[in-house]
Write a protein that binds this DNA or RNA. Structure first.
Lengths: 103, 103
DNA sequence: AATTAATGCAACCATTTAGTTGCTTATTCG
DNA sequence: CGAATAAGCAACTAAATGGTTGCATTAATT
């Protein structure tokens, strides 16, 4: 399931920091989104590939550098997944409450 | 950051399936939440420990067996984290739009 | 009391992951 | 053109991960 891949992609401090940077909305390139992280350029690049594979980001080569953008839809799916879990849970608890009220 | 651990915990198909089962609200034990998964009991137990460490679930030993419950707050934090990312993004896009409108 | 059921602990193994370095390629800028 | 900048590809390594098995323990059942 795709949501597994999404959560896995977000489940790393470096990648989460990248995503946080991107969420500012400022335009980013591979270099800029990787700057200051305590890892090599190639290390950062691997993380970006994982995010791209999970469709958390989109890589857009433009001439010499490559733009990096968040994919809003994918993040939304993650949020929706959790919301659905919570809903299922709430529904069940509600059912229990009715049951108790009927006693 | 704790949210990293949360996402990492959710980023595995077996663990996500366990969480899905728990979200039904039906009471579960280690055995019941692990039943039918194509892994050994100990394999499943390791997954549950990871979920417990990330505070996605709570393990409650009661006599011979151990209850397993979802920790709603933690899931909520995950959802809130994504929501905040989206909000930051929206805010920025809104700012850009104003800028364009001012042209 | 004896058995069965539900766990826990620990050692071990194969694969994946996060990270590196070295080298190459392709734009852009002076 | 030549230098510098942004990036790609590949090979390699250490550590983490997901999985196993074997054995011990504790609690419920009959």
């Amino acid at each position: 399931m795709a949501v597994t891949e999404l959560f896995r992609a977000l489940g790393d401090p470096t990648r989460l920091e990248m995503v946080r940077r991107l969420s500012s909305g400022a335009p980013h390139t591979i270099t800029s989104v990787s700057s200051g992280l305590q890892i090599s350029r190639q290390g950062a690049r691997k993380h970006l590939q994982i995010l791209a594979d999970a469709e958390v980001i989109m890589l857009e080569p433009r001439g010499r550098d490559t733009g990096v953008r968040l994919d809003r839809d994918t993040l939304e799916q993650g949020k929706a997944f959790i919301a659905e879990l919570e809903l299922r849970w709430d529904t069940r608890l509600e059912a229990l409450r009715s049951f108790v009220d009927d006693e």
